[in-house]
Nucleic acid binder design. Structure first.
Lengths: 140, 140
DNA sequence: CTTTTAGGTTTACAATTGTAATCTTTCTCA
DNA sequence: TGAGAAAGATTACAATTGTAAACCTAAAAG
């Protein structure tokens, strides 16, 4: 039934550390998350193991302590997960959901420009209204 | 540990029907989702029950069949759930996540304008760069 | 070398989720 | 009014997730 692995909320926290550091020992991850999330070391170790099983992380075991490296880029993980969430939403509501995100997120000047660029492009061909398909069978 | 109820992916599908119809009997929900999701009636009944337990739905039991009504608006459910997802993300990445969503979502003319409006407003005070806080303790 | 210890592995356990069968009660039609 | 159908309730069961303790093994320190 489940074909594609997803990252749980707790697992995300672990990946964020490793993405940010590029690669990391378990100790580094534990140090950050014990403070940041108030988790026990054992909890964090479990998450690292699960991430390996899900193929989001691999350990370089040539020397000890192991060095954990991401097998998925942060960007693609983000894209997968936001798209996954948006798949739940009524088509008609996606626009306002994005608006909510723009309102509540801090965004850099350059990201703002980038988003506006895309919007301007979209404007050329965007429909007047997007139809709700909540009562219909998924086509895709 | 869990203070706030969240809606699972499957439960979302049920709520979408009921939001779209305004209110609904179980039969209506079942009819749609049997087709759309290929779920069994019993599955859908379970979801309805869980949504009641989570206080997302209530049944008007004054007559039979019961009429199920949402206890949360679609908009606030959406806001909660997108914000919840964005809480996982590195601050620095939120801009590009939004860009991805804009690129992959169909958005109406008026939503596009609305979003651009907000962006223009943000532009006035937006930072040059948003700092990554992945290694720091959450303040909020 | 041996003892401590840090890092890695195994086991645990309750809650949530996906997925549904079965049982029970209430309508409805003959 | 009795039987069958529809709606609602109860029970089930495996996978995932949050959360961690306990255990084992390699490395460091004395």
């Amino acid at each position: 039934m489940k074909e594609i692995e997803t990252m749980s909320k707790a697992e995300w926290q672990v990946m964020r550390i490793i993405w940010t550091l590029g690669q990391s020992t378990s100790k580094q991850v534990i140090d950050v998350l014990e403070r940041k999330m108030d988790w026990k070391a054992a909890t964090i170790k479990t998450l690292i193991i699960r991430l390996q099983k899900k193929n989001f992380l691999k350990a370089d075991e040539t020397s000890r302590p192991f060095i954990y490296k991401p097998l998925i880029s942060e960007d693609s993980a983000i894209n997968q997960s936001v798209n996954n969430l948006f798949d739940n939403l009524c088509c008609m509501k996606k626009g306002s959901a994005i608006k909510e995100l723009v309102e509540t997120s801090e965004i850099s000047q350059s990201d703002i420009s980038g988003i506006m660029q895309v919007l301007q492009e979209k404007q050329k061909t965007a429909p007047e209204e997007v139809e709700c398909n909540c009562l219909e069978a998924d086509l895709a």
